[in-house]
Amino acid sequence: MSLINFFTNDGLFSDFDRLFDDAYARRAQGGSVQPQGSAPRLLRPRVDVHEDKEKNLVTATFELPGLNKENVSIDVHNNLLTVSGESKFESENNEDGYLLRERRLGRFSRSVPVPEGIKAEEIKASLENGVLTVTYPRAVAEQAPKKITIS
């Protein structure tokens, strides 16, 4: 299974998506667009996928800063592993008469394909320091042929 066809890790396609988002936002807002570098309109965690053919293992690493396991859900359906959740981040800094309050709220979802035949119990996940690591077999182990006796 080749993973290269399925992933666009915030490269060319994210720029393409951003162009369309900006164009529609500009049209809806009468010409104004949210400046580059301001708060994100859409939460889209970065994902890295590594395939180890020797160990028959795929590792998908999702960046989820500020989230804990209670805010993240992992589902497998129709050969897609979907990581979704909700970010509720709020910080306040009051210094020398200046007040800075930031919020990052919203839902997110990212999906990666899994090989056919992978069972949910074969998928392992851990979340540490805002990095979710999900591992699963690269391919289902082929069963040895079974000899059937004729009765």
Score class of each variant (00 low, 15 high):
S32K: 01
E54Q: 13
F89W: 11
E102D: 11
L3F: 11
R138T: 03
D48I: 04
Y24K: 04
K88A: 01
A23M: 12
G31W: 05
K119E: 11
L81I: 15
N93K: 09
L19A: 14
V33C: 03
S91I: 05
L80T: 04
A144E: 08
V83A: 02
L57H: 02
L100R: 10
D75G: 09
V58Q: 01
A141R: 15
V114C: 00
F108R: 01
L57F: 00
P113I: 03
N78G: 02
L57Y: 04
S87L: 08
N5Y: 07
D48W: 12
P145Q: 06
K124D: 07
S32N: 05
S73L: 08
H77S: 14
R104L: 13
A120L: 10
G11H: 06
K88H: 04
E90S: 06
R18K: 06
D10N: 12
E92W: 03
N71M: 13
F13R: 15
P115W: 03
L12C: 09
V58N: 00
I4G: 08
L105S: 05
R46T: 14
V140C: 05
S38E: 07
D17G: 03
K53M: 09
V33W: 04
L64E: 00
L105A: 05
E63N: 14
L42W: 11
F62H: 00
G30W: 05
E63Q: 15
N71I: 02
M1P: 08
P45Q: 04
T8F: 07
F20R: 12
N94S: 14
K53I: 14
E90D: 05
V83K: 00
V49L: 14
F13K: 13
V140F: 04
I150L: 14
D10P: 03
F89V: 09
I150P: 04
E63S: 15
Y98M: 12
N68H: 11
S73E: 10
N94V: 14
L64M: 11
G117M: 06
Y98N: 07
